[in-house]
């Protein structure tokens, strides 16, 4: 991975800027996981990652170790995302109280009822399934949004990008054991908060 990144960076620097697209293809999900972890908003995260790639391209010559592009780029994304968060000056997404059905506003029934279909027509089974899954995703994301920033980033890197503990530790500049214990703790919290949502799939629930 390091050798491949080094080759890409050096090719960009030596007159093949189109090779930068390989780095975009390879690391946009990683950048997205970090930006989403900071912002809890996919659209803002997408803008941030695009900005970060442009900044990385412009400053590529200052990258001391081309093989470490991934860590360097992750730092650019995180700083840019934090800047955007500060600029917004609005509170982050609130944690959802699943017990009360509040939080983002719409409850499950409301979500299904507002699903796109012609007026007067009952939703069929597939529409109901889709609506249930969409609602569950929304509630899971709302729960993740209620975590601390670093916890959100770790969860995003693990479950959006599928990184190993070691890879997350490298990006977060911490130890593998710290990542591991943090993931254990965070997922325990999420499990508790999401118990009602997760039980939807359980037999008899």
């Amino acid at each position: 991975m390091l050798a491949e990144d080094r080759e890409y960076v050096e090719r960009v620097l030596t007159g093949e800027p189109e090779v930068f697209e390989q780095l975009v293809r390879k690391y946009n999900r990683l950048g997205g996981a970090i930006a989403y972890g900071v912002l809890s908003d996919f659209h803002l995260a997408e803008d941030v990652v695009q900005d970060a790639f442009i900044r990385a391209f412009e400053a590529l010559g200052s990258l001391k170790e081309p093989g470490r592009f991934r860590v360097w780029f992750a730092g650019i994304v995180k700083r840019r995302a934090i800047d955007v968060l500060r600029q917004r000056k609005t509170p982050r997404m609130r944690a959802v109280s699943l017990e009360s059905g509040a939080g983002e506003g719409r409850g499950l029934g409301e979500s299904v009822a507002s699903d796109s279909r012609r007026p007067g027509q009952f939703p069929d089974e597939s529409q109901l399934d889709a609506a249930v899954h969409a609602e569950r995703r929304r509630q899971v994301l709302a729960c993740i949004a209620g975590l601390d920033e670093d916890d959100r980033i770790i969860v995003s890197l693990k479950h959006m990008e599928g990184l190993s503990y070691k890879e997350i530790a490298e990006l977060m500049e911490t130890s593998v054991s710290a990542v591991e214990s943090r993931l254990f703790r965070v997922r325990k919290v999420l499990r508790k908060k999401l118990a009602a949502v997760l039980n939807m799939d359980s037999p008899g629930s």
Binding site: P17, F20, E21, V24, R25, N28, R29, G31, G32, A33, Y36, F42, H43, A45, E46, V49, Q50, F53, I54, F57, E58, H133, R136, R137, V140, L141, I144, V155, S156, K158, H159, M160, G162, R187, L190, L194, V197, L198
Partner: peptide, 28 residues
């Protein structure tokens, strides 16, 4: 559940395609 909650994320190949115009105007 955690993994599937990110299924709607705008990243991956679709991001590359959507970003082409912006990257091109930025010189990439």
């Amino acid at each position: 559940s955690l993994t599937s909650s990110f299924v709607d994320s705008p990243f991956g190949e679709s991001f590359v395609m959507r970003s082409k115009e912006r990257f091109s105007s930025a010189g990439i």
